[in-house]
């Protein structure tokens, strides 16, 4: 009888253990599925944003894209600045060509009353290091405008500045002294 009691206790403990473990496994699996089940986008911490950057192709007749993660904080201007900085760092893939001259830095990004126009202030290298050629200049402008336009649809015009001031042209083919339309350069 004593044996029977011990046996009962053991079996009871085992059954309880089984129930608990099974329940834990199920709950954890179910929770995991909640997060990963198809149809649910993976929870991304609010401050990480994946953006699309555009570069030229090797034949200079089209754009190619790459993605990067940026921290989405510090407001609109900061996000734009980070995207441009990522663009200036260049491509990470073979066959993609950055049409932005070496040594180009973005100094400031700002908007004035007209929230649809964003001002991008670069250092002199944008002009002084530009190798020239109309294809080169076209894609320098297009890479910047397309990247801004796609990642920030609220922007409709972009004013390029060099050393804080508008310049006539980057390499002698396109006028950039007034804001450029994202739509025209898409």
């Amino acid at each position: 009888m004593k044996d029977e009691n011990i046996g009962r206790k053991i079996i009871f403990v085992l059954i309880a253990l089984f129930v608990i473990i099974t329940a834990v496994v199920f709950v954890s699996r179910w929770r995991g599925r909640e997060g990963k089940r198809p149809g649910t986008v993976r929870e991304v911490p609010g401050e990480i944003r994946t953006v699309t950057l555009f570069f030229g192709n090797s034949k200079a007749d089209g754009l190619v894209s790459e993605t990067r993660d940026i921290t989405s904080e510090g407001g609109f201007e900061n996000e734009v600045k980070q995207v441009i900085e990522a663009l200036l760092e260049g491509s990470e893939e073979g066959g993609h060509v950055s049409a932005i001259p070496r040594g180009t830095r973005i100094e400031r990004v700002f908007r004035v009353e007209d929230k649809k126009t964003v001002y991008l202030d670069f250092n002199r290298a944008l002009i002084s290091n530009h190798p020239g050629g109309s294809a080169g200049e076209y894609y320098t402008i297009k890479m910047i405008l397309k990247t801004v336009g796609v990642n920030f649809p609220q922007v409709s015009m972009v004013q390029l500045l060099v050393g804080g001031y508008p310049v006539d042209t980057i390499a002698g083919h396109y006028k950039v002294d007034s804001p450029l339309s994202v739509r025209e350069w898409r």
């Binding site: 090797s58 034949k59 049409a99 020239g132 050629g133 294809a135």
Partner: peptide, 11 residues
């Protein structure tokens, strides 16, 4: 004009 690109491949 003559054209120019950042790499040698374009022509």
């Amino acid at each position: 004009h003559c054209n120019g690109w950042f790499t040698e491949e374009a022509g």
